[in-house]
Design a protein around this nucleic acid. Sequence first.
DNA 1: CTGGATCCCTTGTGATACTG
DNA 2: CAGTATCACAAGGGATCCAG
Lengths: 118, 118
Amino acid sequence: MKMDKISCKEELTALRDSLEILGGKWKLQIMRYLSNRPTEENNFKKIKQGIPGISAKMLSKELKDLEINLLINRTVRDTKPLTVAYSITNYGKSVVPVTSMLVNWGLEHREKIIKNYN
Amino acid sequence: MKMDKISCKEELTALRDSLEILGGKWKLQIMRYLSNRPTEENNFKKIKQGIPGISAKMLSKELKDLEINLLINRTVRDTKPLTVAYSITNYGKSVVPVTSMLVNWGLEHREKIIKNYN
DNA sequence: CTGGATCCCTTGTGATACTG
DNA sequence: CAGTATCACAAGGGATCCAG
């Protein structure tokens, strides 16, 4: 936990750094999916089916990005046909609170919107 | 605070709802900027100068989106020349924890990356 | 099964000039 | 001051086919 006082500009820079790593349509969804299944064998196909609407191309790209940033592990199993298991790293678990917060926010936002229409 | 158990698919849907409202390059930065200045007169020009890199076009568009979603207020002052004040709504304050978390995450991520290069 | 390569359309974003 | 209009380009993302 950071306790130093930082300026607004520094805050915005940090915020941008986060968004650069975690932003976009899919990354947080993938992180959430994997964090919900820490013990299972999460192979490519299974993840693709678990995240509605994502294409193979996007999933492939996003997984690569997340791996580069040390947020997930990619393990190739020498089976035949070969399979690949993806899992969250310990470091990657640091984004779980972020996704939790957004999940709750999304639920409450929908409630709020619905209330406004009644 | 939600205590109901929800399925992973529902979680991802809620996450997507959040990202639809708050996602993109600028919305969270704008929210952060405004939440840091709740008492000041935040006019268009000032916000534009406070958020490095944003264009007038984008700022205009994003402010409109945020207003539609009830996250910020837009108040036209009948001065001359006319000025417009933007401020966070009470509801909009609910996203402050999200931005705080991302600011901290961004700071720590940078530290981590630097450490990995040494 | 995993996922790279290619093609192509849509959307996002920036620069510039301009209006009320 | 507070934006809008227009153009132009980059990035995002889907579909399809193909290879290890």
